[in-house]
Design a protein around this nucleic acid. Structure first.
Lengths: 225, 225, 225, 225
DNA sequence: CATGAATGAGTGTTCATTCAT
DNA sequence: GATGAATGAACACTCATTCAT
């Protein structure tokens, strides 16, 4: 991210983050695929290092070891490759270690594990998360995209909360959807504060506190016998 | 904020947000003071409309009804006038309605009022808040500035929580500082989601839910006899 | 003089160094005269410190303790006040210590004293001389002005040489005018090298060498009995 | 050089003349090399015509037949291309006619040839020399660079003088290094006066006078049998 | 006369994007 | 396909000079 003391100029002339379509078929040759992959890796490095705005396409192509002009063989704009980076990282974030959250049926333990998993993931992807935060506040379309994605997560949590309520484990005095949204937001913001803003908490104390607050907020008790 | 489909150019060449200093004495003549004030008002309009990055100095001076060159009679850079705008808005945000939060000694009522006040203020200043969010994610120095300011708020809340704990009204199973931080963050993020991202909740349901969650999280009960 | 690492912009919009005329009558009131004098002093300070190009009128008026606009009550342009500075310094350079060069009738001693006087004067006015050198290489009219002035000096020296030649003291194998020009130039350049470029010679060794070279060049001998 | 009556604006924003480094690799393609060469040629034309300060990059690129932005493909600043011009001209100045100065062992003839060669070269490169003089008085770094280069020349001459002294051909009453410096300076200044300031001497009379003065100054006689 | 705010022409510089080779 | 040179729109910024008060 640019230290504010730097002196830079930023340009933007392209199409922006379009709502959906991959907008371009993948290259056919293995070589092309490899170059495209290199480009994405390079873009991630540069974006995470310089931020979206200060990242120059030239830096990305240089990092990828190709010429400036070749960029357009694979992507149409900075926004488009950013989307590709994002897709790539999100794929990576899900892939391997969605270890089935252990904990059996202790709901607090489940929440704890979910919180820990979230924080650890955030930590691992901190530069990327910071980047996402930046872009979301720069570009409206991207902001919407992100919001839409968040919804899924919130809804899943809402369902869990509803279940706990139905089971008599969680209080019914909160709306499950809003509670999910707000409590998830609390954790997300805590992660942002810790890993982007640099608050100095240990993950352990964060997990403890957040879990406690979350459990209290839902008044989670041992399931009624 | 720019729709991402637009085609714009962004410049940044100046010194960035310096930690503090007003960095330039005020003009002495009434005319100068008036022009400076116009400039700040104009800047606020343009910043809130176009975002920090897309705001051009010439738009600001035009909006203020002065020539481009005159900008530098009052400010050295876009960053500097942004700081002035920020100072101005923050002054405005505090001024009138620091209505002593009513509610007597009912702690939940107090929390409710605080939450409502926060949300209403956020709503009133939504374009500005959105702007702040953007700048904070663009400029490191500014991010730090903002974080420092947040601390005060969190600490105040932490003190209240501690008090409630000492009075036996709130649970002692959470650290008051972390709880304050995380719960404040929850509210802040809810406001952001509502007024910047555009979730469609009524303020009333937000206040209800957030207050309930907050109260639950602290296990606030009627004061012991 | 600007270190080349600085970043500046220079403007020039005025009339330049006009060949002659003082182009403006002096102020009538004592106060006006005083302000004008302050302005000239201030200009000298700023010019010598920053060079002609980097000197800003604002710096000059600030240094003089008056407002920017008042400058034009006294001068029409940067060039004009520069001319005034130049006139002032030249007046000063001549005034007090044109001590009749001692040395009786020993021509070498006379040359030595002239050289020493020149070097000492150059040293005393080194910042100004440096400034003159700069301006002369920037502005054609000024260059001519200066050349014209040099002529007088050269002619005087030429006359002396002619005299020595007529007295049989100096060789007749050199043209007195050219010899005067070239030898004077030699001394002038030596002074420039020493006091502007920073060669590290003592004045004493400079005087010795220059005098010796000068005397040799003219083959000055004891006057023929 | 600008007539002082003109109305111009001068900018300077870049890094200045850095001590040495070529600071940028040459383009690889023939086309690139050609454009770079065009740019240098164009810059020389514009610099020599307008002076360093009044030369605008856009004039240079126009003269070179390329767009303004392309300048930065090859150079970072006006200073940098100036250095390239300088290097180019200096290369050119040395190339063809380093004719071994004829004259056999007559030291005066040698000096005469050296003087003539210097003057003729100065004449051929008069616009460039004028330019050099201007830049040297504007930019400190460049001034130093130039001084350093002069040293080599002076030292070579000093060695010759020392030799003549050792052979009993030149007087020992002058320090060879200072004599070299001062006499070289005399010639250089004469050239400047003639070709930049416009004194109207023929080269022939200059050579005659300068050589005579130089020889006299060193009291050069026929080598002691 | 003094003040100091206002003016505005003028140019360097960036970099996403295009295109001839 | 790849290359890398060329393009050109876009803005910040300076400061001599003017002028209303």
């Amino acid at each position: 991210m640019s230290s504010s003391a730097e002196s830079t100029t930023r340009h933007r002339r392209s199409a922006g983050f379009s709502g959906e379509a991959p907008s371009r078929e993948l290259p056919t040759t293995p070589r092309g695929l490899r170059t495209r992959a290199n480009l994405i890796d390079a873009a991630r490095v540069v974006f995470e290092r310089d931020g979206f705005l200060d990242a120059r396409l030239v830096d990305i192509t240089t990092e990828a070891g190709i010429s400036a002009g070749s960029f357009y063989t694979y992507f149409d704009s900075k926004e488009e490759i950013f989307s590709a980076v994002q897709a790539e990282v999100e794929k990576e974030m899900l892939h391997p270690d969605v270890r089935a959250v252990t904990g059996g049926d202790d709901p607090v333990a489940l929440i704890r594990e979910a919180n820990r998993a979230y924080l650890e993931s955030y930590q691992r992807y901190a530069p990327f998360m910071r980047l996402m935060e930046q872009v979301a506040n720069i570009d409206d379309n991207f902001r919407d995209l992100r919001r839409k994605r968040g919804e899924a997560f919130v809804e899943r949590n809402a369902k869990s909360i509803k279940q706990l309520q139905d089971q008599g484990i969680a209080t019914k005095d909160v709306d499950p959807v809003l509670a999910s949204f707000f409590l998830s937001g609390m954790v997300a913001r805590a992660a942002y504060s810790r890993f982007v803003l640099g608050e100095d908490w240990t993950i352990e104390e964060m997990v403890d506190s957040l879990t406690q607050l979350w459990a209290n907020a839902l008044k989670i008790s041992a399931p009624s016998t």
